[in-house]
Design a protein around this nucleic acid. Sequence first.
DNA 1: GTTGAAACCGGTTGTCT
DNA 2: AGACAACCGGTTTCAAC
Lengths: 152, 152
Amino acid sequence: MALDTTDLSILNKLQANAQLTTKEIAAAVNLSVTPVHDRIRKLERAGYIERYVALLNRKKLGKSLVVYCNVTLDKQRKESFEEFNAAVSRLPEVLECSVVSGSFDYLLKVIANDVEAYNAFYQQNLSVLQSVLHISSFFVMSEVKSTTEIPI
Amino acid sequence: MALDTTDLSILNKLQANAQLTTKEIAAAVNLSVTPVHDRIRKLERAGYIERYVALLNRKKLGKSLVVYCNVTLDKQRKESFEEFNAAVSRLPEVLECSVVSGSFDYLLKVIANDVEAYNAFYQQNLSVLQSVLHISSFFVMSEVKSTTEIPI
DNA sequence: GTTGAAACCGGTTGTCT
DNA sequence: AGACAACCGGTTTCAAC
């Protein structure tokens, strides 16, 4: 499926504010409501739009701490990757987990209430994994930017 | 403002799927539509819900590459932080930027079409900054997990 | 792709308990 | 705070152009 500039404009509006009505988007792209509605359905069905979510305020919910951690796995054990991937997927504190190039294997973004809570999480959920060889934690001191918007 | 378990349950539903109707949420938390509606408005006004967005499929939009980069600033120059913060905020390719503890200063999450496009971005937008002393890039080879949902 | 009409559904408001 | 009824607005589908 090929996207034209109108589709891209619609996606851009929706990733900034999913509450816009079809009417408002229609006005912005100079179309009537019907074709805009059809395009949005099409973009959803084709998978360009994955889902609609509410973004919550982390700090207000007590999750003041963000930690990025670098994890190196024990690559002697061939089950290590599957084990680690499965474990991480189950942990709600882990918001992002990627396999990266370079000197370590994984980069994780973890949130916790405070340093103490992070330490408990680290001890009980990460360091106990057989697959884990080494972990370095980097604490976020200040968030300069954080967006889910993909440049279009 | 204090949240009870019903409020938390509502937030949890909405951060998973913002398209749920008040009616559906009401059924899930065993209330009628009106109080659920009031609670959601209250949670929005109090800032627990920051916004509603559509999450797009990065890869379908051509942004196949995710790069995390560690940036060290020239701390001799006292304008460095302001300059770097301002620059990063303007760059749409930078989805996340945090000041971190440890051996480097910033951790950035950047997306690009491919390695070539990343290199162009890097050369033209990051390495030219006076404030930047050193950058290490880590390419994401596989995304194991990526969510915006805060554990509640 | 546009327009207009109609059915539908959820959000919204006011009122009552 | 919850339930109920009435109203309003947007969405959705359809037909005609």
